[in-house]
Structures are given as structure tokens and as C-alpha cells.
Design a protein around this nucleic acid. Structure first.
Length: 587
RNA sequence: GGGCGUGUGGCCUAGCGGACAGGGCGAGAGGUUCCUAACCUCUCGAUCCCGGGUUCGAAUCCCGGCACGCCCGCCA
């Protein structure tokens, strides 16, 4: 409703300006502060004061006089507060919101018929996912959810770097060492099992006698050459390692949950010839130079000082070359592409964008979302060195702490719904993992995070459980109403006028904003604004909960309050769903 | 050295041109015969990094500093 109201208000301001013969290039539409009753406001009067030769409040009053609320369905009244033009919602606005939010898909926007590939995580398949990388799947998955909910056709991609030296080293190490010369795996899962070979391999390459290293390097070289030549046997050897490790990593990511529609392998673009084809076209570009026996792109005219080498002196391609072929593939198969990347890939991201532009691609269709790295207080995390905290360990710890919390609260519990062990376990998972996710997704990606256990696993206010609790409470009310024989009335039978308590109105007004929040989050690729919204929503719901009894309400108010709770449940449930945080029915 | 990003009460964070800078943590005081107290109410606490500028209006835009982070491989 808010989206519709905003259009209506824009119309109203525009025609008022028109009627007074004033320019309408900037309508100054904004959302007023919380303590103002209006749902929308305009500050045009400031800008027009000079032109009209009158003080802003006077201009605002003149404009207000030009607008007849009766002409606009969702506008109840237009008032001024000093220089501001305030638009108050009509009863129809509340009625339409209450009705629309009875739909359990409330907030989902109309299909846009636009396909988008969201690529995220894409961590090299070298071992367990660590916390340093956890921001990527969490932001990426939430972003994919946002876009899906906003009406896009979303495919979730994990780009697999299976062609580099790292994988050649891994393959050599896997074939070279025996299980019994390795330490016990930290966890009984594929990537923990496999990473032992990788770490051993790297240790040997660093510390072993020269001739042993030489021998190893020869083998690693031959694997890389095999991949470059498209040798099937080599490809199969590497694939075995890649697929095994990736399978384990996938299980870890699924815990978040973060699932993928497609694992797009880098070698695919070597094998299908698209990288070679791309190299030919790159060589034809004006910016291409053959320098030091390697083909490169001079991008300094495009604001990038660093040359981009796209063909080595030995004639082989680089990661960057294949990634360009990969991006061209996305451009051919999708209307839009979104990539979630760590800030350490920023330069590469700019090179990709610029080069695609040179190749004649419309880079407006590509969005690159960058986030800052998660560091430990003591420094960086690294898979190769085995430093850092595994994402699995973080999630386990989160669940353990949440379980403890649930058990502690069990005694003092007011509600007698007798949670059993399975409930405790379910809640521990929902709250524990939800808290980790919410903590990460609610922050602006650009800000650097230093990981601290206590901060990441704080279940107090402004965290996932605070919002989850609202959902559980709404479910509780609806459940008890059903048991008492009070069903939520049909959407068409509601009269929002009966929600006359300010707290109920404010909750409804908050519900009304949800689709606009989704739209904004999708447009800007900012999933964190959904998290901010859930917090405001929880405040509004808690105030309503405090002031408005539902089950014991007078008969003439109960139906609408029940419907409001149902609407609230859909809204907060869907918002949490978009964030990828579980919405418990009880906790 | 260059490029990009970040800098908001003791700590974390929202806001990113408009109405007194919102929250949370923390500290203190209260609230449960009533739909879950993982909640609510009240109090304490801010030179919005510093200095200039643009504007009727700047945390927000511009310029110059400072601090921190990331990047600057024929690695991925």
C-alpha cells in the first residue's frame, strides 16, 4: 500500500505545484520522523520559498490548500507542520493494507520477468569454509532471497575455481600422500578429510629438500598443462578432488542455509572454447598490447593503472581471462548478473567491468556487491595455514549456547505449552544459526568486522531472537484463537476502522511499508535494510502487544485484531524468510 | 607511493541533503493475578574523526588532513 500511496502523493504534489505554476523537478518526497503521524511528507516548500518570495511555511500552506484529500484514495488529510507538507493516511489505506497482508505471501512483488544470476561465495574448493568467508554466503543468499521476493527469476551460482595452480597442488598432494601419514580429520566430513592432503602438500612445497620439491613441481606443472590442453584424464583426476571437497563445503553452507542452483566450473569455459574465442577478441581491442611476450590490456585510459594480462607468455590463459568468458556467458543467459565479492577482489571486479564494456557489453546489467573481510582479533584467517575459525565450529557453538539459553528459560516460562526435547533442539538451531546470520546480514557490507565470539553470539535485544520472538508470539495468539474457536475472518469482511488504538495503527502502518522495503532492498542490493525493518517492526508489534489484548478483546474489536496479528505474522515471517533466518512458531 | 573503502555516546550499530542523530550493549530504577519477561517502561550517556567549503538547511555533498582496512603478481 505504501508503494501505491507514494505514487499518489507524488501525483498530488505535482499537480499542486502545477496549479500554482511552480517547477516540479524535485518533489522532495520523504518519510517523516517517527513521531509525526504522516506516512509521507514533502519538503518542496524550502526550495520554492526563494522563487515565490514567501516564507517556506506559507508556501507549504498554499500547496496544502491546493490538494483535496478526497481526490486521492489513500490520502486522509494533508496538513502542514511549519515548512513541511504532511500526508496522513486514509482509512482506505489501512483497510487495503490489512486486507492485502492476510495473504501469506504478503510483500512478494509482482513477477518482473527478468532473470538474474546471483553469484556468491565461490570460495576455492581447498577445505572447510571458515568464518572469514562466512559473510559471502550470508549476504549472497539473503540478496538472492530479496531479489526473488522482489519478483526476479533468480538463479544462485557458485563459481568453482577448479583450474588454477591451487587445484593442481591439491590433486598432486591427494595422489602423493597416504591417509595414514596424515593427522586425524577435525570433523568427519569430506572437506575436513581432504584439506589434510592440501595442507601437507603445501608444507612439503615449503620445507622439503630441493629435489623433492622439484619433482613435485614437475607433477603440478603437468596437471596444469593437462587442464590447459583439455586432457580428459587430467580433468577427471582434478574433478575427483574438486567435487569431493565441494560436496563437503556444500553441506556446511546448507546449514546456514545457503543452497545453489548451479555450480559453474571455471574449466567449463576452457573446454567449450569460449576462453580461446575471448582471447582472440581481446587481442583485437585497441587497448590490447603485446608486451614482455604476454598479451595484456592497457586500461589506464579507463581509470585503471594496472595492466590486465590475459594471455601468459607460454600461451596459457589466466583466471581473469576465464572469468571474463564466464561473465560473457552470464550476459548471454541472463538479463542481469549480481556478484557478491570480498573487497580484496575489488580491483579485479573493476577490470572485469571495464573489459566487458570494451567488449561491447552493457555493464549496467552487472552489479558487483562488495563486502569487507571478517578478521580475527589476532589477524587473518587462512585455509592453507589452518588458521581461523571454521564456520561449522561457529554454528555448533551458536547452537550450544542457544540450547543452554533455552534450557535456562524453561523454568521461568509463563506459557504452559510443554516444550519437549525435540522443541528445545529445534529452537536451539533456529535461534543459534539465526543469530549468526542476523548479526552478519544486518550490517552494511562495506564495514569491516572483527570476529568476537560474544558479540556474534549475543542473543539479547537487536538480534535474531528478538525478532523471532515476535513471530512466535503472533503464532501463539493465532494458535490459541483457533483453539478457542475464533478464526481469522475473511479478508473481505474486515473493517480496519475498528483498529482505533494508536499502537494498532502504527503496527498496520509498519506492515504497509514492507513491500516498499523489499523494493528498496532489491534496487540497491541492500539486504541489511530488511534487517533494520524487522527491528522497527518488532518494536511496533511489541507496543501493540502491550496495549491491545486480542483474545480477551471486546467482540467488536477481536476480529480485526486477530487479522492484524495474522498480517503481522505474515510480514515478519516473510521478512525473516528473506533474511534466511528461521521463523519459529514457538520458542 | 598510488587506488578504493570505512570513521556516529565507553563498546556495537541505523540514518547518507531536510523536522530535536534512531536503536542496542553497558550502568541504574521499575514492571508478570492479564494473549510467551528472549518482552516492556523510565534514567544516564554524542565536539556524528579534524579543518575548510557549497547550501535556506550538512552526520549526509565537495576540497584538504588524520586513523584504520583492503588492493596494486604472466596467483586464484
Amino acid at each position: 500500500m505504501f508503494l501505491a500511496a507514494r505514487r499518489v502523493v507524488e501525483d498530488a504534489v505535482e499537480s499542486a505545484l502545477d496549479a500554482l505554476d511552480l517547477p516540479a523537478d524535485d518533489l522532495g518526497i520523504e518519510e517523516p520522523p517517527e513521531d509525526v503521524d504522516a506516512i509521507l511528507a514533502s519538503s518542496v516548500a524550502f526550495r520554492l520559498a526563494g522563487e515565490v518570495g514567501a516564507a517556506p511555511p506559507e508556501v507549504a500552506a498554499d500547496l496544502a490548500a491546493e490538494i483535496d484529500p478526497a481526490d486521492y484514495e489513500y490520502v486522509g488529510d494533508v496538513t502542514t507542520q511549519g515548512p513541511y507538507l504532511n500526508f496522513l493516511p486514509s482509512n482506505a489505506y489501512f483497510g487495503a493494507t490489512l486486507e492485502a497482508a492476510q495473504d501469506d505471501e504478503y510483500g512478494r512483488l509482482d513477477p518482473k520477468d527478468v532473470s538474474v544470476a546471483v553469484e556468491h561465495t565461490s570460495a576455492n574448493p581447498t577445505g572447510p569454509v571458515h568464518v572469514g568467508r562466512a559473510r559471502n554466503p550470508i549476504i549472497g543468499d539473503a540478496l538472492a532471497n530479496v531479489l526473488d521476493f522482489a519478483g526476479y527469476d533468480v538463479d544462485r551460482h557458485y563459481y568453482v575455481n577448479d583450474a588454477g595452480r591451487q587445484m593442481a597442488v591439491f590433486t598432486w598432494a591427494y595422489e602423493r600422500f597416504d591417509e595414514d601419514e596424515l593427522p586425524e580429520p577435525e570433523r568427519n566430513r569430506a572437506e575436513y578429510d581432504m584439506v589434510r592432503y592440501y595442507r601437507r602438500g603445501n608444507t612439503v612445497l615449503e620445507d622439503a629438500p630441493e629435489d623433492e620439491v622439484e619433482q613435485a613441481e614437475a607433477e603440478i606443472q603437468s596437471i596444469m598443462q593437462g587442464l590447459e590442453d583439455g586432457d580428459e584424464a587430467t580433468y577427471d583426476r582434478v574433478s575427483e578432488v574438486v567435487d569431493t571437497v565441494l560436496g563437503g563445503m556444500q553441506e556446511c553452507l546448507a546449514r546456514l542455509p545457503a543452497d545453489f542452483d548451479d555450480f559453474v566450473k571455471e574449466t567449463r569455459f576452457m573446454r567449450d572454447g569460449s576462453t580461446d574465442d575471448l582471447v582472440d577478441r581481446l587481442e583485437d581491442l585497441e587497448e590490447a598490447v603485446y608486451d614482455d611476450e604476454a598479451w595484456q590490456l592497457e586500461l589506464d585510459d579507463h581509470g585503471i593503472e594496472k595492466n590486465l594480462v590475459f594471455l601468459r607468455s607460454d600461451g596459457t590463459s589466466l583466471y581473469a581471462t576465464r572469468d571474463l568468458a564466464h561473465h560473457e556467458w552470464k550476459f548471454e543467459n541472463y538479463d542481469r548478473a549480481v556478484t557478491v565479492l570480498g573487497e580484496d577482489h575489488k580491483l579485479q571486479a573493476e577490470q572485469v567491468r571495464t573489459t566487458l564494456e570494451l567488449l561491447g557489453r552493457d555493464t549496467e546489467r552487472l552489479d558487483q556487491v562488495l563486502y569487507s573481510y571478517v578478521n580475527l582479533p589476532e589477524g587473518k584467517m587462512s585455509t592453507r595455514d589452518g588458521t581461523g575459525i571454521d564456520l561449522d565450529d561457529l554454528l555448533d557453538e551458536a547452537i550450544d549456547r542457544a540450547r543452554e539459553e533455552v534450557e535456562d528459560r524453561l523454568d521461568g516460562r509463563l506459557r504452559n505449552d510443554n516444550l519437549d526435547d525435540a522443541d528445545v533442539e529445534r529452537i536451539a538451531h533456529q535461534v543459534g544459526i539465526g543469530a549468526v546470520r542476523y548479526d552478519i546480514v544486518s550490517k552494511q557490507p562495506a564495514k569491516a568486522i572483527t570476529f568476537e565470539w560474544d558479540r556474534a553470539l549475543d542473543f539479547e535485544a537487536q538480534s535474531a531472537p528478538y525478532v523471532q520472538y515476535v513471530h512466535a508470539r503472533a503464532c501463539g495468539i493465532l494458535g490459541e484463537a483457533r483453539e478457542a474457536g475464533h478464526d481469522v475472518p475473511d479478508a473481505g469482511d474486515l473493517d480496519a476502522d475498528r483498529l482505533d488504538v494508536p499502537e494498532a495503527r502504527r503496527l498496520l502502518a509498519t506492515i504497509a511499508r514492507f513491500p516498499a522495503v523489499i523494493e528498496g532492498a532489491a534496487e540497491d542490493q541492500h539486504p541489511h535494510v530488511v534487517a533494520t525493518y524487522t527491528r522497527e517492526f518488532a518494536d511496533a508489534f511489541n507496543a501493540f502487544y502491550r496495549e491491545c489484548p486480542v483474545l480477551d478483546a471486546d467482540a467488536d474489536k477481536r476480529d480485526e485484531r486477530l487479522a492484524l496479528v495474522a498480517a503481522a505474522r505474515h510480514t515478519v515471517g516473510n521478512a525473516l524468510g528473506v533474511l534466511g533466518v528461521a521463523a519459529p512458531e514457538s520458542m
